[in-house]
């Protein structure tokens, strides 16, 4: 039985949540993440194998898809970021490896990212952070974008009002600070 305590990217034992005027920013640490990249020449097989495990079609460029306990966001050409709740799928990347063995490359990414979910008035925050028009993203889309000098992954659940922002974990405090100050200024 594992007897080490894990911490969130913001160094907490529990996730951080901040309430602003009409916006909440919540740290979401409990996500298993893995990158899935199709092997050259095996793209179709790899895709099928992955989809068989996930239970839905891998999303097109710039899209996000979710069903059951898995979600997938387009990440790069022939590459996706797959996610699931850690509590149920801590070993997701291992299961993926088995599911797509030899057809796709799987790399565990769970601890490579910090994730903040924004709910509420997001437009003003994004206007202050990114040159990409994130507030205009369609629901169900996902993109990689630069936010205040940081390479992030942004998933839109509802236009202008519900997003996940994933940034490099080692930068978690900088990213959080950027979101927080932008929110304070905008709202």
């Amino acid at each position: 039985m594992l007897d080490l305590q894990s911490i969130t990217p913001l160094w907490g034992e529990t996730p951080r949540a901040d309430q602003f005027n009409r916006l909440t920013i919540t740290e979401v640490p409990n996500q298993a993440l893995a990158s899935l990249a199709l092997r050259k020449g095996r793209e179709d097989e790899g895709r099928k194998a992955a989809e068989a495990m996930l239970g839905f079609a891998l999303p097109e460029v710039g899209r996000h898809a979710a069903a059951g306990s898995y979600a997938a966001s387009w990440f790069a050409q022939d590459q996706w970021l797959i996610s699931a709740e850690t509590s149920e799928h801590e070993l997701m990347s291992y299961q993926l490896v088995d599911a797509v063995a030899g057809l796709a490359s799987v790399t565990e990414q769970t601890d490579g990212w910090c994730r903040f979910d924004l709910e509420g008035m997001c437009r003003g925050v994004f206007e202050r952070l990114s040159g990409v028009n994130l507030a205009a993203m369609e629901a169900g889309s996902a993109t990689r974008a630069l936010l205040e000098h940081l390479s992030c992954m942004v998933i839109c659940f509802e236009t202008a009002s519900h997003y996940s922002v994933l940034g490099p974990r080692s930068y978690a405090r900088s990213l959080h600070h950027a979101l927080e100050t932008a929110a304070r200024s905008a709202l």
Partner: peptide, 15 residues
């Protein structure tokens, strides 16, 4: 471009 190789950074994924 036809080599079958995939790259991704895992720098901060591991302490």
């Amino acid at each position: 471009p036809d080599m079958d190789v995939q790259l991704i950074s895992t720098t901060e994924a591991w302490a």
